[in-house]
């Protein structure tokens, strides 16, 4: 067993268990904290896949910015009402688990029994080359410069929209 395999097992176990804990916790603050753990383990998996830039962006953008935002909103409005629903509607939970298991079986069937159109055995040098910051920056600022600018405008619009929505009164 190589180190890569051991690390994969550790990271995937952490991400799966933290995702399940996130869904089952009643307290939304605990759910947000488990989601941060999940994002961090996903960043580790990205590093295993030689995607350095995305791993760092995952930690900074998701685990840093977005989850702090979520925690801030949770502590601002402090909702505490779900326990009653969970106790009253146990049948609904069984239905949800059944639906999601059905979807999982479908996706697993596609993954294991489909014919790949291309050889997907990993070439290590090409994989490392594809994930470097230089390579991504070069492609992003030459071939994909127009989508990059569009994303900038999207973020600006979202910031203005969030300000307008969360303001006390519109005049």
């Amino acid at each position: 067993m190589s180190l890569e395999f051991v690390l994969f097992i550790i990271f995937s176990a952490v991400s799966l268990s933290s995702a399940i804990l996130m869904v089952t916790r009643i307290n939304p603050v605990l759910a947000a904290l488990f989601l941060i753990v999940n994002f961090a383990s996903l960043a580790g998996l990205y590093l295993l896949l030689n995607a350095q830039f995305i791993a760092i962006a995952q930690v900074i953008v998701y685990a840093g910015a977005i989850m702090v935002f979520f925690l801030f909103v949770i502590m601002l409005i402090n909702p505490d009402f779900e326990k009653r629903f969970m106790e009253e509607k146990a049948k609904f939970k069984i239905f949800a688990v059944f639906v999601s298991l059905l979807v999982f079986v479908q996706i697993a069937y596609i993954i294991f029994f489909s014919q790949p159109s291309e050889d997907v055995s990993r070439k290590v040098t090409a994989s490392i080359q594809a994930g470097t910051v230089e390579q991504i920056g070069r492609t992003l600022f030459t071939k994909y410069i127009l989508p990059f600018e569009a994303v900038g405008y999207l973020l600006l619009t979202a910031a203005i929209g969030a300000l307008v929505l969360a303001k006390k009164k519109l005049k």
Binding site: S15, L16, I20, V23, N38, V73, A96, S100, V103, F104
Partner: peptide, 18 residues
């Protein structure tokens, strides 16, 4: 796929919008 399915189950089960 497993993470995606856990997300689906969460969307269906939970009643808290956040």
């Amino acid at each position: 796929a497993a993470l995606f399915v856990i997300g689906i189950a969460g969307v269906l089960i939970r009643r808290n919008a956040i």
